[in-house]
Design a protein around this nucleic acid. Sequence first.
DNA 1: CCGACCTAGTAAAGCGGTTTCGTAAAGCGG
DNA 2: CCGCTTTACGAAACCGCTTTACTAGGTCGG
Lengths: 321, 321
Amino acid sequence: MATIHDVALDAQVSPTTVSRYINNRIELPASTAARIDAAIAKLDYRPNLLAKRLSTGRTEAIGLVAPEIREPFFAELASAVEDEADRHGYTIFMSSTRSDRQREIASLNRLHDRHVDGLIMMTNTPDDGTLAALIGKRRNVVVIDEDIPGVMVPRVFVENHIGAYKATRYLIEAGHERIGYIGGPDGLYTVRERRAGYLQAMKEANLKVRAEHLAGGSFMPDFARKATLEFLKTRTPPTAILASSDFIAIGVLQGLKQAEIKVPSQMSVVGFDDMPLTELFNPPLTAIRQPIEALGRQGFQVLFSLLSGKQPRCLPCCQCN
Amino acid sequence: MATIHDVALDAQVSPTTVSRYINNRIELPASTAARIDAAIAKLDYRPNLLAKRLSTGRTEAIGLVAPEIREPFFAELASAVEDEADRHGYTIFMSSTRSDRQREIASLNRLHDRHVDGLIMMTNTPDDGTLAALIGKRRNVVVIDEDIPGVMVPRVFVENHIGAYKATRYLIEAGHERIGYIGGPDGLYTVRERRAGYLQAMKEANLKVRAEHLAGGSFMPDFARKATLEFLKTRTPPTAILASSDFIAIGVLQGLKQAEIKVPSQMSVVGFDDMPLTELFNPPLTAIRQPIEALGRQGFQVLFSLLSGKQPRCLPCCQCN
DNA sequence: CCGACCTAGTAAAGCGGTTTCGTAAAGCGG
DNA sequence: CCGCTTTACGAAACCGCTTTACTAGGTCGG
């Protein structure tokens, strides 16, 4: 393969000049430029990325770390991030951590090892501080979707509180008074926020929140299925259930199917996240749509400005200090 | 950040020795090894990947090119490839081409530019030879899932013919005699194979295949929806429909819903691909399960042996010459 | 006509590893 | 004690690009 030296030789200039010319760091008289262009074309020269990276210290790649890319939410998000990255000349490395702390740490190490220039990080397992501490030692990390308490890096979230509030209002306005709620694992920011949104809407409508109609602890459909069956066993079961994620909603639907409760005639169900095709489910699922695409693009843009040395703009969704 | 020189200095050896030691290319007396280990730990030394890559010429990364990672099939596959790659110390670069030839070419160029050591390639748009020609110029490319005619690289496919054959047999054994078939875009290997499997099963059972119960041309649900409505308009509509992918099956279900035909009482539907959660659809979808995970792992393994300079083993699924 | 200032470049020193070639010293068989 | 092998390393070239520091030669104002 041709190197920059070969091109320089052919164009009768020095490698320095060629390098500067192709990186737009110099303006050359037309004749010189033409010679270089011709040499590049003739030799089919393509700069060796590896050499370029070593000498600049940048890879023009970023990492996207998610618990599981198989899940529609993340796949959708990844797609948006990739598109936005592409637009800025960046490529992305994806990794599925399967909620494994070791894999999350491995991603951060890859950042340290200059595998990538920056990281967009998602995690859904509560952190005891290890992760936050490690992130604190790295530069160019952006946390999205779910908070990691104590990290001092830019973060981008969806309006979880408002989303859950609106979903609850929707059920209240439909006339429901006993609305059950099933949330996710304890210790997660999004879980707390959504729950708070639900509670606020209930309180504002002067509706009683019964402890036996509140559940939480896991995102697994099966957990939600069991919780739903518990709800149904109570003396006055709820007439609607707010599920704080689509996976939970799926569990709820399974539980209701098992108990032969018709949706929506006997029970209303509203989900949260956003999974394509849930409208084909039996019964179709109503859900609060999350702006996944915007989340992904915003996440990239914040990271991008970090990488460009710019202070990221303090957007409403990002709690800078 | 500490370099190999710093370590060498601290351990009182040369960089050469440190390099060889950490790459297991030398055996050192315990005392020297201990000094090096101590220096590495003390300085928190991590080899600079960029430098390593430049000098070895390898990136230990591979590209995974798919039309759309948002689709469950690809997301699932990606997950398997990633896992297998991880096991072998490789990381993967994913790109969604959105079935755009330019993006496919861009991926191949990234391979040329040494962005990655190899490529696992999927495409679902019929090739006029451009892609095949370009792939021919590259090394370390493996084509999976869908064939690209004329490429002379290792390929890994699912048994499309047998899958469709079995799905058709299943319907025939359930007593169906008029079985409609909706395939994908023309010019694709998988589409031809599946169609052939369907036709073979029909022929073997002496069942007539009516032209008006055969459709094909696109993977879009909407295309399948319309085709389904056409089927229903025929004098004697089919009693079962074989959809050659889950997306097509979704379109079929939409069409049937629209025509108020109950599944499975009035019409049986069998899909192909494999999408998680289709069992929650209304009505639940029966589908021929593809060994997606195996496809991904196999794909990686074939590429891996290519990268290791080994001739890939000639597996039954791979048509070597 | 002289110094200042462009214009159009260049030489050489990195970046941080790997690798080839080589050697000093120790061990050892005869 | 001599020559050969082994052990334990090291010097320096190299991977291919970027970048800093510098210069030869022309232009121009005074």
